[in-house]
Amino acid sequence: MVTYNVHDLVFFSDVTDLTYAGSCPDWVATAVMRAPVGVIRRGQAPAGMLPIGIRGSNKSQRFGAYLPVTAVTDHLTSQEIRHFGRSNRQDKMLPIWQALDQINPYLDTHQYDWGLSGSAAYELVTGIPTVNQNSDLDFIAFNQEQLTPPKAQHLLDWLNSFGPHADVQIMRGQAGFSLEDYCYHHGQGVLVKSLQGPYLSADPWNE
């Protein structure tokens, strides 16, 4: 049985595969025609459906829909995407790609079960120019051992030393929290995003 995690990418055939509430913006059909791919989003879905997000040509174009599991033609986990080939990188000299090439070997050597998401993941998979000079490097950390705030800060400082801002989401099941938020706000509670909605936790590692 296939397991789908938040931030995985799923492929399908056509915009008619999607179901949604309300009306569908015109740009969605154009985006799907260009790349029939959606990102698994956090949320409840009807039986046999996956909650997915469709991204357009800019940050304001994001559309939530549902995709029948039977309509999935291919599936890539965020861990697989982190190791995706370089051929789909459009501007290979952008800082985000230079940073990823230096970070990936460290993650592999230390057997970090981390994936890649966000604009970098989308461009790697589709070949559509998505990242720019100011893009963040978005990591998804699975099965990450608990870190003390000083160790978490040390890791973030190292990740950010390559230039682009590194955003690390720590996953606990289908819930997740920001490593950066943990470093700076652990005393006041850390925001955890879950299927039931966001909430503050004093102990996000053990949710």
Rank of each mutant, 00 (worst) to 15 (best):
V2F: 09
V6S: 01
V10S: 02
V10C: 02
F12A: 10
S13D: 15
T19L: 01
Y20R: 07
C24V: 15
V28C: 12
T30V: 05
A31T: 01
V32D: 01
P36R: 11
R42Y: 08
A45Y: 13
P46W: 06
A47I: 14
G48R: 12
M49P: 02
I52E: 10
I52H: 06
I52T: 13
G56T: 11
N58W: 11
K59M: 13
S60K: 10
Q61R: 09
R62F: 13
F63Q: 08
F63P: 04
A65E: 08
V69C: 11
A71S: 13
L76F: 14
Q79K: 15
I81F: 05
H83S: 12
G85K: 02
R86C: 01
N88R: 15
R89Q: 13
R89K: 01
Q90V: 15
D91Y: 14
D91Q: 14
K92R: 14
K92Q: 12
L94N: 04
P95A: 12
W97V: 00
Q98V: 05
I103Q: 08
N104Q: 05
N104V: 10
P105E: 08
D108C: 06
H110C: 08
Y112N: 07
D113I: 09
S117C: 10
E123M: 09
G127Q: 07
I128C: 09
I128Q: 05
I128M: 09
N132G: 12
D136F: 05
A141W: 06
N143D: 14
Q146M: 15
P150S: 02
K151A: 15
Q153R: 13
L156C: 10
L156Q: 04
D157G: 02
D157C: 05
F162E: 03
G163R: 03
P164A: 10
Q169S: 14
G173A: 11
S178Y: 03
S178T: 12
G187I: 07
Q188C: 04
S194Y: 00
P198G: 14
P198M: 09
Y199P: 02
Y199F: 15
L200G: 03
A202I: 00
A202V: 10
A202G: 08
N206E: 09
